[in-house]
């Protein structure tokens, strides 16, 4: 089971694009009220399944193969906060868009938090082995078009109501799909970071001399 208890303020602020901005009390109270609304609406659900690293139709592109190189097997993973969060974001866009912006950012932080909990469950099942970090469609040259097959082998539309639209966007939108690999041996560092990020060239964090947490 995974449960959302609180949502990281740091992450939320990062998704708001406001890293480094000074917090004040009115912003704090806005974050508080958004957090309680979001936690009421969010019903996190997840699925994961052990798959072969040779599974057809899932591992397209160089980057994901490199990511999983040396792995014994892999997991397909998906997580969603559910349709009510999308609805909350939609209705708050009408009633108070400032709130909508915060809830949108906070929900991104929340789904990441939920996904990290799922990582933990998989790690527990593979005690003594080593896990790569989650690699999602859209990272590097790993195409979004595999979302469809990833969800389909997880039976995600039926089991947790998670689908993609014809442009491979996940619906409900506050959702994550990914694969991660399991290896007998420690995973070399350095497979993560700006070097493999699509946005590195135009990244506003880098321009500001900082980094995101990717």
């Amino acid at each position: 089971m995974i449960e959302l208890k609180s949502i990281s303020r740091g992450e939320t602020v990062r998704y708001l694009g406001g890293a480094g901005v000074k917090m004040n009390s009115s912003m704090e109270s806005l974050l508080d009220s958004c957090e309680s609304e979001l936690l009421r609406a969010a019903v996190p659900k997840y699925l994961y399944k052990k798959i072969s690293v040779a599974q057809d139709g899932i591992f397209e592109g160089e980057d994901v193969r490199r990511h999983l190189s040396g792995c014994e097997y892999a997991y397909a993973v998906c997580v969603t906060l559910g349709a009510a969060v999308d609805r909350l974001i939609r209705s708050s866009q009408v009633s108070d868009i400032a709130k909508a912006v915060v809830i949108d950012a906070m929900a991104s932080a929340a789904v990441e938090n939920a996904a990290a909990q799922v990582d933990g469950l998989i790690a527990d099942e593979n005690a003594g082995k080593f896990l790569t970090w989650r690699f999602s469609p859209g990272y590097g040259d790993y195409p979004l078009s595999v979302q469809d097959r990833l969800l389909s082998i997880l039976d995600a539309p039926r089991k947790i109501g998670l689908c993609v639209n014809s442009n491979f966007l996940l619906t409900p939108t506050k959702s994550v799909t990914a694969v991660l690999g399991v290896s007998q041996n420690p995973i070399p560092k350095g497979r993560r970071g700006c070097a493999v990020c699509n946005l590195a060239k135009d990244c506003k964090f880098r321009k500001a001399g900082t980094r995101c947490e990717f």
């Binding site: 349709a83 539309p157 993609v164 014809s166």
Partner: peptide, 14 residues
Amino acid sequence: IGPIGQLLEPSGSL
């Protein structure tokens, strides 16, 4: 007949 597997508007774009 089961669901199409894509969400309808407004959640999805079908």
